[in-house]
Design a protein around this nucleic acid. Structure first.
Length: 315
DNA sequence: CCTTTTTCCTGCGCGC
DNA sequence: TGCGCGCAGGAAAAAG
């Protein structure tokens, strides 16, 4: 399940293989994956054919490729191809000779480069992800839109509401803290709300909460400044380690642009560890067992000793 | 307006 | 062997 570290691994691969190249053909075997492109398949193709990918930029789990009709021009790009991997999306850089994947949805061919494969394929089993072309608009704060690329202060219109992620150099902790204080909800809900802080999904939310020794139902309005610092520091730390490990893969659904899995799954402390002992308690000579609770229609894992339920829990 | 729930989607593993 | 069911969950839409 791609969250920030997995998407960043993909971004780096795309930057290496795709940036600077021109789109020479566009095939859409399954239009459902471009349903967020409201004007349809032909418009999608027309917007991409002949354009050059200037950069690969990421904010949270959103990726985008600023496009230019004339790469020799210094003009600021005004459109971008946006990609979101959803639950099971993959962006694969491959040779055109590779057999078509079972869930192949979109196929882009690029200008030839001797050391690089010709195609970028979007493969998606569950179709929660997708691609679309949209306009780039100025960021609300005038700072670079996200991580990677040339640092232009632009963002796709459909991603303008997405908050900065904890690995963004322009991430504003004080602003997030004030939003926590103003909101009447539980901490994990807030961590998963991409408009407040982006890039965190179910796995890294549980890992960050475990690392910070906090409960998912902690009311955000009771958070004090050091509490906000602690949970964000934990999220940043766990996602950085995951990025260094190439991301978290439980199965073949998350892979990098070359189809390889990441190795962070073996480093998880809470997520997926129901019935197993808490590593931190173990270190202290205690025995407590990680439990699983259903919350927000998904599983939450926590140590009942390190992360006790607060009396004022906000579910 | 703000917060919470539902919906979209497919494949896999499980119990009967 | 097959079938129904629950589960996986990002984010937009709908509901409260």
């Amino acid at each position: 399940m791609p969250e920030l570290p997995e998407v960043e691994v993909v971004r780096r691969g795309l930057e290496r293989w795709i940036a600077g190249r021109t789109i020479t053909s566009v095939a859409v075997p399954d239009p459902r994956s471009i349903r967020r492109h409201a004007l349809g398949v032909e418009d999608f193709r027309g917007n991409l054919l002949g354009t050059t990918v200037l950069d690969v930029v990421r904010r949270g789990k959103f990726l985008w490729f600023p496009l230019s009709d004339d790469p020799s021009s210094t003009a600021v790009p005004h459109t971008a191809l946006v990609a979101h991997l959803g639950m099971s999306g993959q962006l694969l850089v491959e040779s055109r000779e590779q057999p078509h994947e079972k869930h192949l949805k979109v196929r882009l061919s690029f200008s030839l480069r001797p050391d690089a494969p010709e195609e970028l394929r979007f493969v998606d089993q569950r179709i929660f992800g997708g691609l679309f072309v949209t306009s780039l608009i100025p960021t609300s704060d005038g700072l670079p839109g996200g991580s990677g690329g040339s640092g232009l202060a632009l963002i796709p219109a459909e991603a303008a509401h997405i908050g900065r992620d904890p690995l963004d150099p322009d991430f504003d902790l004080e602003a997030l803290h004030q939003k926590f204080r103003a909101r009447k909800t539980g901490l994990k809900r807030a961590l998963l709300d991409q408009s407040l802080v982006s890039g965190i999904g179910n796995i890294y939310a549980d890992e960050a909460l475990w690392a910070a020794k906090m409960h998912y139902a902690r009311p955000t309005e009771t958070m004090r400044r050091p509490d906000t610092e602690r949970i964000i520091h934990a999220a940043r730390e766990v996602m950085t380690r995951a990025l260094d490990a190439g991301g978290t893969s439980f199965d073949s659904l998350y892979v990098n642009v070359n189809g390889a899995s990441g190795y962070f799954a073996r480093s998880l402390n809470a997520y997926g560890r129901e019935g197993k002992s808490c590593y931190r308690c173990e270190e202290l000579g205690l025995t407590s067992i990680i439990g699983r609770e259903t919350f927000m229609n998904r599983s939450s894992y926590r140590c009942p000793f390190c992360q006790p339920k607060p009396r004022n829990a906000r579910l």
